[in-house]
Amino acid sequence: MGSRRDFIEKITVTALSAPILFNSTSLFATSDEVYEGPMLRVAIMGLGSYGTRVAKAMKTCKRAKLVGVISGTPSKIVDWQATYNIPKKNCYNYDNFDEIKNNPDIDAVYVITPNALHHDQVIRVAKAGKHAICEKPMAINAKDGEEMIKACNDANVKLLVGYRMHFEPNTLEVIRMRKAGEFGDIKFFQGQSGFKIGDPTQWRLNKELAGGGSMMDIGIYSINGARYMVGEEPIWVTAQETKTDPVKFKEGVDETIQFQMGFPSGAVASCLSTYAVSHLDRFYLNGIDGFAEMQPSTGYGPIKGRTHKGPLTEPIVTHQTVQMDEMAKIILENKKPEVPVDGNEAVKDLKIIDAIYEAIKTGKKVML
C-alpha cells in the first residue's frame, strides 16, 4: 500500500463490499435539480491519483467544471486533454502557468501537488488573479500558510482548502447533533488515523516535499476532526513519537505520533497518527448524554457510524463532487459553509501540527 490515497480507496472498496446499513439505490446519489447558473471553471494542478479522482468526480458536478490542467508531465497533459476534452490553450506546465492571468476561461486552480510546493504555487495562482483551492495540509507550517492567506487577500481572490469531510452528510449530522446538545457536554474525543505505507522512495517519505511524515499526511484528519467534532479550538497539546524503522522513516519523517489536546471546556482528545499500522480510520465522540462513533470516519465513502440514538443513515455521496459544487457556491455566491474550508481554517490545523512537533522535541506541554 503506497499512500494515503491507496489506503482510503481500499477502505472504500472494503466498506462497499461489506453489509451496510443504507439503501443501495442512494449510493452516490445526486439531486435531480436543474441548474442553469454560473459555473466555476477549474484547472487542476497536479495530475496524480487524487487529481484524477477529483477530475472524475467533477464529471457529475452541477456548478463546477474541469476546463484546464497544469502538469510537469507532457504525456499526462495529452491524456487528460483527450479524456476530459480540455482545449490546448488551457494546458500549462509548472514553469508557465503564471500565464493563466491572461486566460478568462479559468476561474480557479485546484493545487494537488506535494505539500511543500503548495506555498509557492498558491501564491503564484493568486498573483495571476485566480481563486485558489489547495489540498491539505495547506502548507508545511503555519507561517507559510499565513503568507498564502495574505497573498490571496492582497489579490482579492479566495483561498479554499480541500476539506471534503466538511460537506459529508453523516459528518454534518454528527455536528448538527452536537450543536443541538444531543450529546450533552462533550468530554472526550478519540481519533485514529493510519495505514501501513509502502514504497520508501515516494514523496510522502521525503521531508523536503512532505514537510514531515504521517502527521502531515493522515494525522491532520484527527486534528481537524477533533476540532469539528468537539466544536472548540484546543488550548494545549502534548505528543510522543515512536519510530521503529529509522531507515524508512528518516530524520524529520515521523512514523507514529500519539498526541493529546485539551479544550477550554475541559474536554480532551487522544489521537494517533501512523504509517505503521493499517485499518485505522475511526472517530469517537463522547458527551455526558450520548456518543457518536464513525468508522470509516474519513475514507472516500461510504462513511459509516452510529450514535446513542442508532445508525447514521444520511445519503451516501461522492465527496469530491459535493465538495466542488459547494466550493463553487462559496466562490461564486459567497455561501457560508457549515464548517469553514478557507485558509484561516487550515492555518488553525497547521498551528496545532507545529505545536505537536514542538511537544515531541521538548517533551513538554505546548500551549496554543
Rank of each mutant, 00 (worst) to 15 (best):
P264T: 08
P264R: 07
S265C: 11
S265D: 12
S265M: 10
S265T: 14
G266S: 13
G266V: 13
G266T: 13
G266F: 06
G266L: 13
A267N: 09
A267M: 14
V268F: 02
V268E: 14
V268Q: 12
V268A: 07
A269V: 09
A269H: 07
A269C: 11
S270A: 07
S270N: 13
S270C: 03
S270V: 11
S270P: 00
S270L: 11
C271V: 11
L272N: 10
L272A: 07
L272W: 09
S273F: 05
S273Q: 10
S273E: 11
S273H: 05
S273M: 08
T274N: 09
T274C: 12
T274P: 14
Y275D: 03
Y275G: 01
Y275S: 02
Y275K: 00
Y275L: 03
A276N: 14
A276P: 12
V277I: 15
V277Q: 14
V277H: 08
V277N: 10
S278Y: 01
S278D: 15
S278G: 15
S278H: 08
S278N: 15
S278T: 14
H279V: 04
H279S: 11
L280N: 02
L280T: 02
L280G: 01
L280P: 01
L280D: 02
D281G: 01
D281I: 00
D281L: 00
R282H: 09
F283P: 00
F283N: 01
Y284R: 00
L285T: 04
N286A: 12
N286E: 15
G287Y: 03
G287R: 05
I288G: 00
D289V: 01
G290L: 07
G290Q: 05
G290D: 08
G290H: 02
F291Y: 12
F291D: 12
A292I: 13
A292K: 04
A292G: 09
A292C: 09
E293L: 15
E293H: 13
E293A: 10
E293W: 07
M294F: 02
M294Q: 09
Q295K: 13
Q295H: 11
P296D: 14
P296M: 13
P296C: 12
